[in-house]
């Protein structure tokens, strides 16, 4: 009895399994690597990182926008909630949060914030409380990335926008 059809079928099925595993695992693996890189530069999790504007020499996160100033923070709310604070500049600005599987589960921009500053609590459930009645965002995964984006509206405003984004912060409650 010929067995090669069985071997081919088995190999194809196994290849399909590897294909699916790769597709499912890649987002977690790449996010893990990104979180490790940011945390290493920031001095740990739950600490902000203020990277220089993106250039061709920057090899951290793919497809960065050279028109924005970023502030990044790897969150870990497994043990304690996190307080996120930032001034809101008078230019396009957003605060976004990404789960361990890459999902962008929260975003607020400068127009929606509609204030000169913002405070948000990130936690694993909605029972956490901030000091000033700050809104609570529930994280779908205990670890992930918080990213602030500030548009460099003009060269003249670069220094002031840079100074403001360096006040963005994340710290455990």
């Amino acid at each position: 009895m010929k067995t090669w059809p069985m071997w081919i079928a088995g190999t194809v099925v196994l290849a399909a399994v590897f294909h699916i595993l790769t597709i499912f695992a890649l987002p977690y693996g790449i996010m893990d690597r990104a979180m490790a890189g940011i945390a290493a530069q920031a001095g740990g999790v739950n600490k902000p990182l203020y990277p220089e504007p993106a250039t061709a020499a920057v090899r951290g996160i793919v497809r960065p926008s050279p028109d924005l100033l970023y502030t990044a923070c790897v969150y870990d709310v497994g043990a304690r909630p996190l307080r996120i604070t930032s001034p809101v500049p008078d230019t396009y600005w957003s605060l976004s949060m990404f789960a361990a599987n890459t999902d962008n589960f929260f975003v607020v921009n400068d127009r929606q914030a509609n204030a000169g500053s913002i405070e948000i609590i990130l936690a694993t459930d909605d029972t956490a409380k901030g000091g000033n009645g700050a809104p609570v965002v529930v994280a779908p995964s205990s670890r992930g990335i918080i990213l602030f984006r500030s548009l460099i509206a003009s060269d003249e405003e670069r220094a002031s926008i840079d100074a403001m984004r360096r006040q963005s912060d994340c710290e455990p409650l």
């Binding site: 699916i20 790769t22 597709i23 499912f24 890649l26 987002p27 693996g29 790449i30 996010m31 990104a34 996160i61 793919v62 497809r63 957003s94 976004s96 990404f98 599987n101 890459t102 999902d103 962008n104 975003v107 921009n109 990335i145 990213l147």
Partner: peptide, 19 residues
């Protein structure tokens, strides 16, 4: 899952469509 994997490889930390 394919979109998530594409985002991870070629657009990590991409915002959602409303933003």
């Amino acid at each position: 899952p394919y979109t998530r994997a594409r985002v991870a490889v070629g657009g990590l930390l991409a915002l959602n469509r409303s933003e």
